[in-house]
């Protein structure tokens, strides 16, 4: 189905399923770091590809991007974006960090953040899959620490092949005691979007 054919009802349904998915992911994260994590109401963004970097706060912002593919009965990309400060705070909850180390992440830190991505995406996809009555599994996570524009252009490749619009379901999460925030994005391809909406009983 074409992204520009989506109605308000479709977008509502997407918001709702994503909300449930991210709620599970946030629970998993708060258990992992021993801090409560809150969520914003998800936003469904239909954006021209050229405007996508602005959604992330400008193409040059430094972020940790963790990518996973959604595999199984529906396909798409999952992108978790953590501003640099938040990624470092998250790491300090998970690993002893030597403050003298430079701006780059160590192997161990990269591995820890990938695992966080894996836990978040697995919890999200489990919940989404259960709602749909389908099996959704995440791929092995990969990570990049760079300018957000460079980190995300990868997610736009598949979408760019079929159109000029990107559909993103965005949920922001943040720690209550500590300022740890991040964004969780689901970028379904048009075929998978139809599968998701069908499976949750939305009329197309």
């Amino acid at each position: 189905m074409k992204f520009d054919a989506l109605t308000e009802e479709h977008l509502d349904a997407l918001r709702e399923v994503s909300n449930i998915g991210v709620a599970h992911a946030a629970t998993a994260l708060s258990q992992l770091i021993g801090r409560s994590i809150s969520l914003t109401v998800p936003k469904v963004l239909l954006t021209e590809i050229c405007k996508v970097p602005e959604v992330f706060g400008g193409a040059e912002k430094l972020v940790v991007g963790i990518y996973l593919q959604m595999l199984g009965d529906a396909r798409g990309n999952i992108l978790i974006v953590l501003p640099r400060d938040s990624a470092l705070k998250l790491l300090s909850r998970l690993l002893p960090r030597d403050k003298s180390e430079g701006t780059l992440l160590t192997e161990l830190e990269i591995s820890a953040l990938k695992e966080v991505g894996n836990i978040l995406a697995s919890a999200y996809l489990n919940a989404l899959g259960a709602l749909m009555g389908k099996t959704l599994i995440p791929s092995v996570p990969v990570l990049s620490f760079d300018m957000v524009g460079a980190v995300i252009d990868y997610a736009l490749i598949e979408l760019g092949e079929i159109g000029d619009l990107a559909l993103m379901v965005e949920t922001d999460f943040f720690g209550e005691e500590e300022k740890i925030n991040g964004q969780f994005f689901l970028l379904p391809d048009p075929v998978s979007l139809k599968i998701i909406l069908n499976a949750i009983g939305v009329k197309l």
Partner: peptide, 13 residues
């Protein structure tokens, strides 16, 4: 005209 053309955050692009 003389300008600065900029583009930010080229990854695989």
């Amino acid at each position: 005209d003389p300008v600065v053309l900029v583009t930010y955050g080229l990854g695989s692009c």
